[in-house]
Amino acid sequence: MSVEQTERMLEPNDADALTDGLVLASDLSGALGEDLRLRRLAGRGHLYRFYRGQYIVAARWREFTPDQQYELRVRGAALARRGSLPVSHQSAAVLWGLPILVPWPREVHFLIERAAGGRSDPGIRKHALGIHEADVTERDGVLLTTVGRTVVDLAATMDLKSAVAAVDRALAVDRFGRVLPLTTREELFDTWERMLPFRGSVRARAIIDFGTHLSGSSSESGSRVNIALSGFPAPELQHRFEVDGRAVETDFFWRDYDCVGECDGAGKYFDPVMLGGRTPAEVVYAEKLREDGIRRQVRAFTRWDTATGLNQYRLRARLLQLGLPVGPSRLNRG
């Protein structure tokens, strides 16, 4: 890149020409010596500084989802360290596409050797838990912990619903082949044993035991946690009914109490991928026919949204209306 090209690229009126995204101050240091012009553009709102010396066109940044924004921060931090340390915990999770049910952190997480200590730099969190070669891999040019190691780390440290959602997604598979497992339960247990001893190991083992390949979404995973915490009987997941000659599956089925629960996120009705070329109205109508067909075959049916599913007390009230009994909690909050 010539000095003239660089200066032209950095003009405010041309900032939106950076459709590919990134501008690195290190790329400009030979021509300009410092990233002062980038800082000025960021100050004027044309660029967004997502990591030290790394910028993106502000309009493009605003188009990103929170997942995409955090992933860019993680990639920026990994690029700055040139692969010297593996990305870990939530930062590895976003690169593997593992969900969490709380906001992504501002910090980027890295794994370091136990003897190195845990001192962290601004915007960086270092975990002195040891690095086993079997737990580290590379993905799209970034050194990071494997899916198995990432899931065990999350199970030991994250809030309960996020930890379960991560385990469930790592194991998930559906009958249509749209979702494939990222790891196996056996691999998770092998990783867990290799890491011993570590803080949170008992909690992590319990969460892996609780995990399932049948959860259809992170909202269902969070709902399943709250069902267990409230002491309701364990439901059957993805139980099949026949409606108008077609097999359909329900999120939660309590056979002994002949009732069904369904958890719907907004994506089912608004996400273009999930709509599959249908309009929201068509999806709502098809869902109504499906629900009516199931209702004719069970004693009780209820539906809740993501916000209700992730709130233990709101979901408890909804399930009590089904007539489900409440017993001791089946899951330790840890």
Rank of each mutant, 00 (worst) to 15 (best):
M1D: 09
E4R: 15
P12F: 10
N13E: 11
A15P: 10
L18A: 11
G21P: 01
G21W: 15
L24F: 13
A31Y: 15
A31P: 01
D35A: 14
D35G: 15
R37L: 15
L41E: 13
R44T: 15
G45Q: 10
H46P: 07
Y48W: 14
R49Y: 01
R49P: 06
F50R: 06
F50K: 02
R52F: 00
I56N: 08
I56K: 04
A59M: 02
T65V: 10
Q68F: 12
Q68S: 04
Q69S: 06
V74P: 01
A77E: 02
R82H: 11
R82Q: 14
S88E: 13
Q90C: 07
S91R: 06
P99K: 03
W104A: 04
E107Q: 12
E107Y: 02
V108I: 00
L111N: 06
I112V: 14
E113A: 14
R114D: 12
A116P: 01
G117S: 04
G117C: 09
G118S: 14
D121I: 01
D121E: 13
P122A: 06
R125Q: 13
H127A: 04
A128Y: 12
A128Q: 06
G130Y: 09
I131G: 04
H132R: 09
E133D: 13
V136L: 07
E138F: 13
G141V: 15
L143G: 00
T145Y: 11
T157K: 08
M158H: 11
L160R: 03
A163N: 00
V167F: 06
L171N: 03
A172I: 00
F176C: 05
F176L: 09
G177F: 13
G177L: 13
E186K: 11
D190T: 07
E193N: 06
R199A: 01
R203T: 04
A204H: 02
R205A: 13
I207A: 07
D209S: 13
H213Y: 09
G216R: 02
S223Y: 08
V225T: 09
L229V: 09
S230E: 07
F232P: 00
Q238R: 07
T250K: 08
F253L: 07
F253S: 00
R255W: 08
D258G: 08
V260Q: 01
D264I: 11
G265D: 03
F270R: 13
L275M: 02
R278H: 12
A281W: 14
V284A: 04
V284E: 07
E287C: 07
R303F: 08
W304H: 08
G309V: 03
Y313S: 10
L315N: 07
L315G: 10
A317D: 15
A317Y: 13
L320W: 04
L320P: 02
V326G: 04
G327F: 15
S329K: 11
N332L: 14
G334W: 03
